[in-house]
Design a protein around this nucleic acid. Structure first.
Lengths: 323, 323
DNA sequence: TTGTAGGCGTTATCAT
DNA sequence: ATGATAACGCCTACAA
């Protein structure tokens, strides 16, 4: 009978006594409202799809944590998709999210969103995080990649480095493009020909960091500094240098990307670019949940928000002259 | 018309031509089946709730990754709950999971499942992972904590250590209890009085690891070895020792728990107990999904599976005599 | 204050 | 081979 439903949803017309009775009975029986049924009536779910390339990456784990907390506070739950940057997995998960009628999707897209992914995203509110891969809407929260790398590069140039190796993700990722742009900007603004810049661009993995170091050590003119444009790459670089017994910063200066604890503990502690992932994720979550409540007709079709990174100076950088 | 539904679900009675036509039209319109509606008809969802204390912990991140992959392969999606070991958050999320009619729940429970959590779990298939906190069903996948710690302790005792500090999670967690048990077993089997064992049990955090080190350094008789019973604690121990300028293993032997990469890279590399979390998670996922397909009447009511850990010997342990 | 009825999208069943 | 119908659980407009 409808009295029950009304009591549970706290309808004003129901007496307090009845409400208590009903609530008690519900508790007793372990009754829990049926979300799917609610949704069928047109209500929307409290699920937000979160699409990440990799949850073991510190970077994305922090994002998941911050998003999850923020969303939880407003009653939203996270459905997790880990794509491994595979567009096929990505499209499959998006399709499922749409099928499950999630309230919205927050995604760190793979380099190449499939056509179908884009079509599917058209059917559901979404926002891109960190990376921007085109798509139906122009909604994006990210860090100012270009500025961050420009400052890091400038730091190295100011220390006198003229032969710098830049190891990062390829330009297929939007972040890769913007970061490389920043590196170039630093050279340009100082009027230094970028010919002395060696770039090693590929997948943002520690494996690639290691391989890049091996390649650059084989170069006729060995760089005096390495600049990393990805968290995992940083790890690979450091391990490879240690294995090659190249002292930091004695024989090689290093600036890392991202700031897990070990950057501080490492001997010597690593200078890093620290992107504000916490606040980025929180901002994104809050903005997105607000948008989910915004009536269709008032929605903006374009929104970009960039946060700036910090350059954390530690002892892993030195002047090339000191060698 | 019902022909459409049949065509999409591949009913045998529908001609191939019609099917193709329908599929094409569906594709065209971007039609995606409505999961909530399907569920209302009694079908079950393809969502599995995953409850973890903390996704930034390497340990749990690996589990999330492995579970997610295994589940994905069979079409299941993960709804993520991060509890921060807070029983209130936990019960809220479990309630939501039940409300969303997830197919099942895989959980690393907090120390104290609330009564309501237990009642709710009664309504949905579930399995506990790593920790076991009682509850309606007696289904659990974990590591053989006792054995792992016994072997690690034995290793230290065999090296001649007689004054060992054990830093770990409190006995409120099932894992904490079993691990302490293992430590004691090692002493008992060797007939060594455990009076020389100093235990520092509290929350499994790096903060606790640091504080415990400070406390033990203030002891009249400083231990010659530290044994960690938690991944985060390990990190805290190492940082605190470095800050106190105590050399490993010169002045203090250390055995860590868990095996993130930095254990290997740290100078000197850290000897660790490596629990087989990958295989644990995969085993658990496969078993659980199989169970979800098992008819009610054939379900076992009790199932325990423990995997054994490896002891990875590296250079962070030495003999007390060498000092 | 409480009851009734209808509809959300899907699919199993029954009828054509 | 295809169409019509009922039912799942919830909510709400309307009736009593």
């Amino acid at each position: 009978m409808s009295t029950v439903g009304r009591a549970l949803s706290g309808d004003a017309r129901i007496s307090e006594r009845t409400k208590h009775a009903v609530r008690a009975a519900a508790e007793e029986l372990g009754y829990v409202g049926n979300l799917p049924a609610r949704m069928m009536r047109g209500g929307s779910s409290n699920l937000i799809g979160l699409i990440l390339p990799d949850i073991q990456n510190d970077f994305f784990a922090s994002i998941a944590q911050a998003l999850s907390e923020s969303c939880d506070r407003q009653g939203y739950r996270i459905v997790l998709s880990i794509t491994g940057d595979d567009p096929e997995t990505e499209v499959r998960h998006i399709r499922d999210f749409v099928g499950a009628r999630v309230a919205g999707i927050i995604l760190v897209p793979s380099a190449d969103l499939k056509r179908e992914s884009i079509a599917l995203l058209r059917q559901v509110p979404h926002v891109q995080l960190l990376r921007y891969a085109g798509g139906p809407d122009d909604l994006w929260f990210g860090i100012d990649d270009s500025d961050a790398m420009e400052r890091a590069t400038s730091h190295l140039l100011d220390l006198g480095h003229r032969s710098i190796a830049y190891v990062a993700a390829s330009e297929r990722l939007s972040t890769g493009r913007r970061r490389l742009e920043g590196v170039h900007n630093a050279y340009r603004k100082r009027g230094i020909p970028p010919s002395s810049l060696a770039t090693f661009l590929d997948a943002p993995t520690s494996t690639w960091g290691e391989r890049a170091v091996h390649e650059m050590l084989a170069l006729p003119e060995r760089p005096t500094a390495i600049l990393s444009g990805s968290a995992h790459v940083t790890m690979g670089i450091i391990v490879a240098l240690r294995r090659a017994q190249i002292a930091i910063p004695g024989q090689m200066s290093v600036i890392g990307f991202g700031d897990p604890n070990w950057c501080e503990w490492w001997q010597p502690p690593i200078t890093v670019i620290r992107p504000p992932i916490q606040s980025l994720a929180v901002n994104c979550a809050l903005w997105f949940m607000d948008r989910l409540r915004t009536p269709e007709e008032k929605l903006v079709r374009s929104y970009h928000a960039t946060s700036s990174s910090e350059l954390i100076l530690r002892s892993s950088t030195g002047t090339p002259a000191s060698r």
